[in-house]
Amino acid sequence: MSLLRASSVISRIASQQRSFAVSQSRLSSHDDIMEKWPADKFDKHFIDYLNRPEIDGWEVRKALGELHDFDVIPDPKVVEAALRACRRVNDYALTLRFLEAIKIKCGSAKNREQIFGYIVQQIKPTLTELGISIPEELGLDKPELFIPQSEWWWERKWYKEYGFDKKPGFEF
Rank of each mutant, 00 (worst) to 15 (best):
C106A: 12
S25Y: 07
V60G: 01
G139Q: 04
V120F: 02
T128D: 14
R97L: 14
R18Y: 06
I132G: 02
F116K: 01
Y118I: 05
E171Y: 05
K103P: 01
L4N: 13
G169L: 01
E59D: 11
L64Y: 02
A109C: 10
Y49W: 13
R61T: 06
I47C: 06
V72T: 12
F164C: 01
E161C: 08
S8F: 08
T95C: 09
F98K: 00
Q122R: 09
D165F: 01
R5N: 11
F20Q: 15
S15P: 00
L145H: 15
K124E: 12
N51K: 14
L94A: 13
F20E: 15
P74V: 03
P125T: 03
G65T: 06
I55R: 03
H30F: 11
F46M: 06
G169Y: 01
D48G: 10
K166L: 06
D40Y: 07
V79P: 00
T95L: 01
L50F: 00
E155S: 10
K62P: 02
A82W: 00
E129V: 06
N111V: 04
I33M: 09
E113N: 12
P76C: 05
Q16Y: 09
V120D: 02
G57N: 08
P148Y: 02
R84M: 07
M1W: 09
M34P: 01
Y92T: 15
S8Y: 07
V9P: 04
A14H: 09
K157I: 06
V60I: 10
K167L: 12
L130D: 06
R12A: 13
Q149N: 12
E151D: 10
R97N: 15
G163D: 04
R26I: 10
R87V: 13
E59W: 04
L99Q: 01
E155K: 09
I10M: 09
E144L: 15
Q121K: 13
L64G: 02
A82Q: 00
D75T: 04
S23V: 08
L140P: 00
P74C: 03
K103C: 11
S7C: 09
A14Y: 08
Y92N: 13
L127A: 04
D71F: 04
P168Y: 06
N111G: 08
I147V: 14
D56H: 10
E66I: 14
W37N: 11
H30N: 12
A81K: 00
S133T: 01
Q149Y: 06
D141C: 04
C86N: 07
Q114R: 12
F42D: 07
S25T: 09
W153C: 08
K105R: 09
M1V: 15
P53Y: 02
I104S: 09
I132H: 03
P38Y: 03
A81P: 00
H68M: 04
A21T: 05
V78H: 02
L3S: 11
F20A: 15
S28R: 15
F20H: 13
G131A: 06
P74L: 02
Q149D: 12
S23Q: 15
Y92R: 14
A63S: 07
A6H: 07
R52F: 03
E100C: 15
E35F: 09
S28Q: 15
W58I: 15
Q114V: 14
E155W: 08
R52Q: 13
Y162H: 10
K44G: 07
Y159H: 05
D75I: 01
E144D: 14
G169F: 02
H68C: 02
E144W: 11
V89P: 01
